[in-house]
Design a protein around this nucleic acid. Sequence first.
RNA 1: GCCGAGGUAGCCUAGCUGGUGGGGCGACGGACUCAUAAUCCGUAGGUCGCGGGUUCAAAUCCCGCCCUCGGCACCA
Length: 692
Amino acid sequence: MKLITCGLPYANGKAHIGHLRTYVPADVYVKYLRMLGEDVVFVCGSDCHGTPIVVNAEKEGLEPKGLVDIYHEHFQKVFSEIDIDFDYFGRTDAEYHHHRTQDLVRRLMENGYIYPKEIELAYCPNCNRFLPDRYVEGICPYCGAEARGDECDQGCGRHLEPGEILQPRCKICGSKAVYKKQTHYFFKLTEFKDFLIDFLSNLRGTENALNYAKQWVSAELKDWCITRNLEWGVKFPGEDLVVYVWVDAPIGYISFTEKACEKIGKKWEEIWMAEKKTSEIIHFIGLDIVYHHCIFWPAMLKGSGYSLPDAIVASGMVKVEGKTFSKTRGYVVWLEDDYLASNLNTDFLRYYLVNYTSHQKDLNFSWEIFGDKVNNELIANLGNFLYRTTYFVWKNIGDGEKAELNGFATPETIKMIEETINKIKSSLEVWEFKALSDAIMELSSYGNNTFQHSKPWELIKSDLDSAKKVLADCLQIAKALVILCYPILPKTMRRLSKVFGFDVERSKIEDSLKVEDFTIYKPVIPFQKIEKEKIEELEKIMMERIKKAISEERGETKPDEEEIKEEIKEGGTMSETKDVSSSEKNVVSFEEFKKLDLRIGKIIKAEKIEKSKKLMRLEIDIGDEVRQVVAGIAEEYKAEELIGKLVPVLVNMKPAKLMGVESRGMILAVDVNGKPILLHPDKDVKAGSIIR
RNA sequence: GCCGAGGUAGCCUAGCUGGUGGGGCGACGGACUCAUAAUCCGUAGGUCGCGGGUUCAAAUCCCGCCCUCGGCACCA
């Protein structure tokens, strides 16, 4: 038995193309395994806990559950329309999931892997409560950017542990938060280091995932705070706390498997209980959650006696129109509002996602390429062959109802199909769905070739027997294609299998090799071609969204269409192209220059920042005030020699924090191979003198 | 800066135990008409990121460098 899972969608926003980048290949994989006779369980579900959901629900005037209901239903609907057929699509706020989570946590406690520790947490005196990570805003201790309590989302992107953030403020009322002590619980991740190194060396999956994970484990591991102050979530046993959402979310793989097995009559213990395990566990995830699946998750499972995953398959990132996927910047394709609303065949999208590039690589989604691929590959090659073959037989051999062809395929044809099947099998082993679908398209091409060169339209007039021979070969290929394409194009192939008088959903791969007589019922046109206008319409929708996002970002000027097209062509974001050098554009207007507040400052105090290699804390007199500036010059200059020196200062530099020290301004220096050389005015001038 | 993954015709890619660089899409020309102007045949298009080296022979091995993407790090 094999268990296949997909990373859980967070029930806080709508489904977009990024989700499908993982789910479609996983579904394709599952459908092939089933056709190959494997016993498969396929599960997924909504990730329902965590602060963002609580915050958003509050914003919408809903209970968390109410918000989750909306998105849970949305995801289910979208997945079923796109023929992603999970055996069970659960939700982590369900009772059975809480039960499983608590069981796992208890086992970890019993085995001594969880310990309490008093930590300082942000507390809002005004709201009179502890602030969960996402309710806190402040300064990232690593890069100095504005950050959320759990993650430096604007700056360096680092995960922040509770209590790490500097200058915390309450996100709800905006007032300054204070630190208060409270006991939380930690998972001894550090004890699993050796285990993880060993585990990862045996883990299968895509290299993109495994390489990352190995890199992380060999670096420093920290114990992991697994409790939070929140009402919404799985109660931590014996405390008025909730387990961290990243602890309970993956446990959904277990709890959803239980429900799935209940439904289809299998034993979930054979999958998930270490001592009873007889099955394989394969996780399909996005590249962004490799850390959780390759580090936290196996350690949790190991520590609690559950089974370990056998393979982690990570899909590459999604780009939209050549740009990094971004909901806020408008580079996104919404499944319901964009794709499903367009009434395009959902199989088209499945084909694109599977066939554009290797599963591990970044996938670029562009409506223009989409239209080209569908019209020129899917329809012109595959669709055309299926239709021309079945239609020709039905029209020339049949009696209006159906056509019965006495004729059998030749061994050469069977061999060709066999080769295709072998390619499919070997591609599945390494999760290469592009190679797989290319092999199928090759078979279709071979079919077109056979048809074209044998000229049945001429033979039928002179030599009916020869014509039938040719047609039998073509029909065999066509029927094989219906079967072999089904996992990728389920909707279409279900329809087409009826033309051949069988149900492809119940077929096995080997059925495509079965040589038999054919009966063809009235053919259907496999795919509807995509009109140019449709593509333009969809491009326009995206364009409008990007335009809106840019104007929101800029605050005023609205970019025109040409500008965006230009920008898509060039690559690089709007803001990047604005100030990044590209010969002509690399010209600064006087207006722009005026924005810089450059002055001469006098260094009145200097001291090296402890524990830092390069950083120097400076106090600089800039005329009307004394500024604290951090500069990376400690390797080149000693504190004593800096006192009294006049240096150029960019006064209105965005403030930042470095090594926990605030820096308000930036001193200018010459860069010689990365080493700073300070600049001094030619004559002695007053501190605060303007530079221009 | 460090660590990964990459850089092969306009785009997606195969080839990476070394031996005259394959395929698909697009472009161009032709053939055909059963077919959703689909198909089939042919042509053009590549300094295989750059520079060295090993070798009779390198996209393929070694060294250095550049660029892209992702992760990490004390960029101000």
